[in-house]
Amino acid sequence: MDSAARAQLHRNMVSLADGNRSAFSPVYRALWPVLRAFVARHLPPPDSEDVAQEALLKVFARASNFDPERDALTWAVGIAAFEVRTARKRTERRREEFGERVRQKPMDSPEQSLVDRDLEAAALEILGTLRPLDIETLQTVLKSGSPSVARATFRKRVERSLKRLKLAWRMRHGAD
């Protein structure tokens, strides 16, 4: 989404939060493809459509509480990121129920878990604001997968993606 479309979405979301029903359709048309693509990047196809729809419904359910000081797209993607996390947890729980092997994580203190959870949600939110190429690059690094481009090009891409991620984080949270 380019900056003009993003600004337009923000204006429409502010208007919708105020109760202007005529802003509903433009917000719907602008958000649905973005949320659908975002969720599809993080979840496999059978689940992604359901989760994207749930995220969209939550965005509209909370539209009246939207704070005009926040960026509409980041806010909506943040809700979608939370839905992705919930869906992953649900899947994990289902796997445990069926007795599948689940990687055991070391037990953290409740405070540490809370901090980790918040950090994870914040990171997902920031990740959603990056360009698709950056997200793909960072995902390849995290999964330790093999890059589809030459190593030197990939190294450069990783460097740039991390730089943008840091910048987005700093702009959002004011710290590294």
């Binding site: 969209l56 419904l57 939550k58 509209f60 359910a61 909370r62 539209a63 009246s64 509480n65």
Partner: peptide
Amino acid sequence: RARTSYELGR
């Protein structure tokens, strides 16, 4: 459904 969610949210 999105419209209904919005109205219920309001």
